[in-house]
């Protein structure tokens, strides 16, 4: 554990908590892509299957349980409790265009051809693109509420901080994992445009609005 890894995890934790609290307190999931949330649930479940096979630490197990729990709570709130506020029309990204290529890629490029390993690899690939339906929704409506922007910023920062963690581990521990690194770079790059708008607009107190 190093400072980059810890900050990354806390940022990730902050993101999922912001999202659940936002939906719960405003009694609305307007502006949130249910499709991205479904993809994240798939990511957590396929990656954290090792919860039942290997024990790493109390920290590791608790975080995994929280991420899976928060993810399912979000889906429940969006598709059941506050269903009426879910903005279907703007959430029109076709997730099969993300699922199919990531499944194929995981079958082709992995470290070991075992069920757990392929699913882990698939979750890494899928996570790198899972935010696309949400970003697509923001670009379609042309704006995002501040709280949604904070959520996206925390969620995007998490993998960026992991990149720093991997650079650190490469030098300090002679340790690297190419699949995670390349996917992490892709994932972080996808947020760049959003990061720019967040820093230049939201942090200056303005609403995140895309240029017409």
């Amino acid at each position: 554990m190093n400072i980059f890894r810890l900050s990354g995890d806390l940022s990730h934790l902050l993101a999922v908590i912001i999202l659940v609290l936002k939906i719960w307190t405003t009694r609305s999931c307007a502006g949130i892509s249910g499709k991205s949330q479904i993809l994240f649930a798939i990511v957590y479940v396929t990656r954290y299957l090792d919860l039942v096979t290997t024990f790493v630490s109390v920290y590791n197990t608790s975080m995994k349980v929280i991420f899976i729990g928060a993810s399912f709570a979000t889906i429940y709130l969006m598709y059941s409790k506050f269903k009426a506020t879910y903005d279907h029309n703007h959430d029109s990204f076709r997730i099969e265009f993300l699922l199919a290529p990531t499944v194929i890629l995981a079958l082709l490029i992995n470290q070991k051809f075992t069920v757990l390993e392929v699913l882990w690899t698939f979750s890494i690939y899928l996570e790198s693109v899972a935010i696309l339906p949400q970003l697509f929704m923001v670009s379609k409506t042309g704006e995002a509420e501040s709280i949604t922007s904070h959520y996206l910023f925390a969620l995007g920062s998490y993998r960026g901080l992991y990149l720093l963690n991997w650079i650190y581990r490469y030098y300090a521990e002679d340790h690297y994992e190419l699949i995670a690194i390349v996917s992490g770079i892709v994932q972080t790059v996808l947020y760049c445009d959003f990061f720019y708008l967040y820093i230049t607009k939201v942090l200056k107190g303005k609403k995140l609005q895309l240029p017409a």
Partner: peptide, 10 residues
């Protein structure tokens, strides 16, 4: 350098 799994990560 070892290209090993980062299964201790999240």
């Amino acid at each position: 350098k070892d290209n090993v799994q980062t299964k201790d990560e999240l």
